[in-house]
């Protein structure tokens, strides 16, 4: 009898901890997205050159891969997440300025932003409602991601617009898988650090937004 109570208590404690990670992740994610929006607007106002995007993405990725894991369990981790997301947002400035200068630019940016929001919220709601375990996707998504990086590398030399469109479409599919995978890991206790969970989900949102911008930008040119 006591053992049953103990099991129920353990499950309840685990569920509370999971909910806390989930709540903190979404809270930090929403704050970092707002901060990114602010730095992107700042970058647009400053009229930063195109190389800002490249420098910010490489800098942000290097900090995310090598610095953040060391500070993920300390309060400094939150500051580093804001630094990374602020840098990535700042890098978006010249990209958004370029799209805004297109005849249909405002529409493309609005649709990409709205589309990214719908995809993220839809997939998160699906993972949360079904409570399915998507841990089996890990290997598949990582291999897919590496193949996309290889294809993107090849396309720097080949410069094929159709391949660029295809890469963006595949990135959206893979990032959608990562949203399911990451959300499922939080729900099932595989990810207990909300700082790392936030940066993972932020990266998926960032990549979906950039890919949608590229797809809609290419499609609007076909008129």
């Amino acid at each position: 009898m006591n053992q049953n109570y103990s099991t129920v208590a353990q499950r309840s404690t685990s569920a509370i901890a999971t909910n806390k990670v989930l709540r903190n992740t979404y809270l930090l994610l929403s704050m970092t997205l707002l901060f990114s929006g602010f730095t992107a607007a700042l970058s647009m106002l400053m009229n930063t050159p195109p190389m800002t995007y490249l420098i910010s993405v490489i800098g942000g990725m290097v900090i995310a891969m090598f610095v953040l894991p060391r500070f993920a369990n300390s309060p400094a981790g939150i500051g580093i997440v804001f630094l990374i997301t602020g840098m990535l947002g700042f890098g978006l400035g010249p990209v958004l300025s370029m799209y805004a200068s297109l005849p249909n630019g405002g529409n493309i940016i609005t649709l990409s932003l709205g589309g990214t929001g719908v995809i993220f919220m839809g997939l998160s709601a699906y993972a949360l409602a079904t409570k399915k375990d998507f841990s089996f996707l890990g290997g598949f998504l990582m291999v897919g991601f590496l193949l996309v990086l290889l294809a993107a590398l090849a396309n720097i030399f080949l410069q094929i617009p159709a391949m660029s469109l295809m890469i963006s479409a595949v990135v959206i599919m893979i990032m959608s898988g990562f949203i399911l995978y990451d959300t499922s890991r939080i729900i099932h206790g595989g990810e207990t650090n909300y700082v790392l969970a936030t940066i993972g989900l932020y990266m998926t949102i960032f990549n979906i937004f950039i890919s949608l911008l590229q797809i809609l930008g290419i499609m609007s040119n076909d008129d």
């Binding site: 529409n107 649709l111 990409s112 589309g115 719908v118 995809i119 839809g122 997939l123 479409a169 959206i172 599919m173 959608s176 949608l212 797809i215 809609l216 499609m219």
Partner: peptide
């Protein structure tokens, strides 16, 4: 998602 993105591209 693929259908949704196609729909956005049509807009």
């Amino acid at each position: 998602i693929a259908i949704f993105v196609t729909f956005l591209a049509m807009l």
